[in-house]
Structures are given as structure tokens and as C-alpha cells.
Design a binder for these strands. Structure first.
Lengths: 189, 189
DNA sequence: GAAAACAATTGACAAATGTCAAGCGCCTCA
DNA sequence: TGAGGCGCTTGACATTTGTCAATTGTTTTC
């Protein structure tokens, strides 16, 4: 489990064994069962989370009780609600496990300490944020400019893992369409 | 023009007069006329741009020639295509002026130099990126979970300036709907 | 100052997507 | 092991949004 994280860090930053030990010592493992929350709407997000196993989702729930999936995340992805984490405000979102999962938690203060102590780690995290921003800009572009069918095909191509591992109703929710609509367009009208 | 930038920097970071002089010396001014491009699809984005005057937009153009506005930006906002800027790849987007505008340009290398030299400036820029990411996550949430009418009302409330200064057809484009649809829902069906 | 371009609206109709209800197969878990 | 729940599909119909064309008033441009 920690091995996964180790490989990830060594692949993304020039971190020595000793430095990695510092990272490891600041983390703790949490196991999640399918459907278990990692973060619940209204709670304050206190951890940066690195996924070592499983599939998770971030979603909101509207007035009518409909869920809307903001993003999926799996092994080697980070997940948290940055808005809540950075500002210390109650989260608008839920994060839960779609499959049984394992995550490494890094408390906010520990994370700040680690980034101060290890500039290469800080750089790695900043680069991830940069990429995340670019990704979400591109998603905005897609969601306002594509038809339901185009969105679905792009999704399958970009994220084949998610397409295989997430139930169709969740994919529909991610795309902003109804499960029935997705079912129909998959079976060509 | 530079005054606007100075006030902005002093409001957002603990920068001395001398340090500000360094920032200023790395910038150059560009004036844009309405409809003039700051960045054109296919070109590589080479500058971080700070807007001192006017209203700009970032947009994509699809196969059918339809424009889709990714974002608006005005005085005291930064604008660029980070994907192109960071990776040095041709941009998928266009940036142009909706009103006559003035921007301060900071070349990529200069910006990196400034961030190395002035940690408080680097912090300021990182914080902006962090906020931008949060904002785009929230926009994704909204765009997949709201009706056209809700999107419009939220837009007007969140960005009254843009609602007043941008033509309706552009607001529709930002919201991902047709101008006719926006016109109709504004005039209550 | 006239001609052209632009911005917004409206109507009639078409296409896309949502809603509700029913049905089917498969998994799971008590 | 069997009852219920879940995931997906399908049909009939409602609603929303898009398309195209015409109209009007306003701005831009020469």
C-alpha cells in the first residue's frame, strides 16, 4: 500500500530514501469499504488523500436529491475538497468509495510541514495542482461545447478505467445527463 | 495602468517598493482594441497577463464554427492559457478583447525569475492558482447540475460586472446555451 | 449621414433530453 | 437459497433547448 505511494513519489520527484521516510511517517492509512464516506457534505476536509487502491468519487447533491459527480479518482490520484481544506469551511461535496479502497491521509498541517521541509515534494504537489486546473478548464470547455454523445465518447477515451469500473448511472451523473439518456445513446438511439 | 497593478500587488502580498520595481521592470504594457486577439488558437501562449483595463474572454471554436466561452476576465484578473504556457504547446483557445483593454505582459522566463527572487510573489501566484482551481471545480458542479435558468441567475449574481459588460450572446456562450434560449428565459418564456 | 454590421427578440417547428413506469437479469446477504 | 435490491434497458410521452428565418432598433464605419 505504502509501496504504491513510494513508487509514485519516486517517479514524480527526486526524493531520497530518508526523505521518503519523512513523508511516510506523516501519513496514515485508511481503509474504506464500498459506499463508505471519506468526506461528507457539511464536514470540514482535513486531509490531503492519496489513493493506493480502489475507485472514489466526489459528488454534490442538489435540492431534489440528485447526485452530480464532479470527479472520479483511483490509484495514484490525490483526492480532497481543496476549497474546504484550504479555507477550513464546511464542504459542499461528498467523497465516497465506489469500490473497496485504501487511502493515505496527510493532515493539512503535516502537509504544510512536508512541503516546507522538502521543496521537491512541494514542487510535485504544485505541479499536480497546475495540471488539475488545466484538466478542469478542459472539462469546462467540453461540457459547454459537446453533445451528450461526444461527452460520453471523450470520457471513455480519456478515462477507460473509469468507464470500466464505474456503474453507468454514475458515468451519466459525471456527464450531466440521465442514466436513461446514456443507456439510449450507448445502444445507438 | 501600472498603478492598478501596483495596488493589486500591495493588496495581495507583502512586497516593498524596491521589490515592486523589479516586478514592474519585468512587465511590458500591451494595449488591445476591441476584438483584438491576445492569443490565437494554434499559437503558443508565452505570457502571463495581468489586466489593468477592459474585458477579455477565453474561448474555443468547435467544428461547426461555434464559439464557446471558457471564461471572462477583467481589471485585476490574470489571464493566459496555462496549458499552452506551461507545456509550450499550441493553444486550443483564443483570447481576445471584448472592450478596448490594457494588459501587462510577463514572459514565462521572467515570471519564473520573479517567483524565484520574490517568494511572497510566488506565494501570491500559487494562491491565485489554488483559487482558480476551486472556482473551476465549482463551475463544473454548476454546469452539470443546474438548469439553464439557474445557471444564468447564478452567473448574474456571481459576476454582475460581466453580466453588464458582455453582450448577451457571449453570456449564452459562457453558459453553454444558445442566444435565443437565453433571450427567452430572460423574458420569462 | 447612409449603408452595413451587430444585438436582441420572436415565431414556428425540429431535435435532444428528461420523466415515469415497467421489466429483466444478476448479485448479495441474511 | 430465495427475496430484495441494484443496474440497466425500453416504451410512451412531456419538457427543454436548438434551428432557421424574419424583424427591429442600435451601433459602427466610411
Amino acid at each position: 500500500m505504502v509501496d504504491i505511494f513510494k513508487r509514485y513519489v519516486l517517479d514524480h520527484a527526486e526524493v531520497s530514501e530518508d526523505e521518503f521516510a519523512i513523508l511516510e511517517s506523516a501519513s496514515h492509512i485508511r481503509k474504506l469499504r464500498k459506499r463508505q464516506y471519506l468526506l461528507q457534505e457539511g464536514d470540514v476536509c482535513r486531509y490531503h488523500c492519496f489513493i493506493t487502491k480502489g475507485l472514489l468519487r466526489t459528488y454534490s447533491v442538489d435540492d431534489k436529491g440528485n447526485e452530480h459527480i464532479i470527479r472520479f479518482a483511483m490509484e495514484n490520484w490525490w483526492i480532497s475538497d481543496r476549497e474546504s481544506l484550504v479555507n477550513g469551511t464546511p464542504s459542499k461535496y461528498n467523497i465516497d468509495a465506489i469500490e473497496d479502497a485504501e487511502v493515505l491521509l496527510f493532515a493539512k498541517a503535516d502537509m504544510n510541514m512536508l512541503m516546507d521541509k522538502l521543496p521537491v515534494f512541494k514542487k510535485m504537489i504544485s505541479d499536480i495542482l497546475d495540471k488539475s486546473f488545466i484538466t478542469s478548464q478542459n472539462r469546462i470547455n467540453e461540457v459547454i461545447s459537446s453533445t451528450a454523445e461526444e461527452k460520453y465518447h471523450n470520457f471513455v477515451q480519456r478515462y477507460p478505467q473509469f468507464a470500466l469500473r464505474a456503474p453507468q448511472a454514475m458515468i451519466a451523473s459525471y456527464l450531466g445527463i440521465k442514466p436513461e439518456t446514456l443507456s439510449r445513446l450507448r445502444n445507438k438511439r
